[in-house]
């Protein structure tokens, strides 16, 4: 019987977006500079990818102030958690075949 590969969510199947989601799945709510520091991405690129994830409803972006400085906070949504779990599940099917 031929193995059926589950489709990988194209929105998550990209290095930086996957890194952001993996980071947010562990952390409750992270500031933009923290995500930038941990992923090693440039601010511009990260902004674009965060916008994409936010538009898909995978993360929620909250803009606030920390003293006088603006502060962007990102938090994974329930939708995002589901999508991430489905992505990991789909990934397993590829890895299982790779191991055989």
């Amino acid at each position: 019987m031929e193995k059926v590969f589950q489709p990988l969510d194209p929105l998550l199947h990209a290095e930086l977006r996957l890194a952001v989601m993996s980071l947010l799945i562990a952390d409750e709510e992270a500031e933009f500079p923290y995500i930038k520091e941990q992923t090693g991405a440039t601010a511009g690129n990260l902004s674009v990818q965060i916008d994409k994830l936010s538009s898909a409803g995978y993360i929620k972006v909250r803009k606030t102030f920390k003293g006088k400085r603006p502060c962007t906070l990102c938090r994974i949504t329930a939708n995002g958690q589901k999508a991430f779990a489905a992505y990991v599940e789909a990934l397993k099917s590829y890895l299982e075949v790779g191991e055989k």
Partner: peptide
Amino acid sequence: LTAERSLEIITEQ
């Protein structure tokens, strides 16, 4: 992006 690389990114983060 291979499946292995995806797994690596998740583990790394």
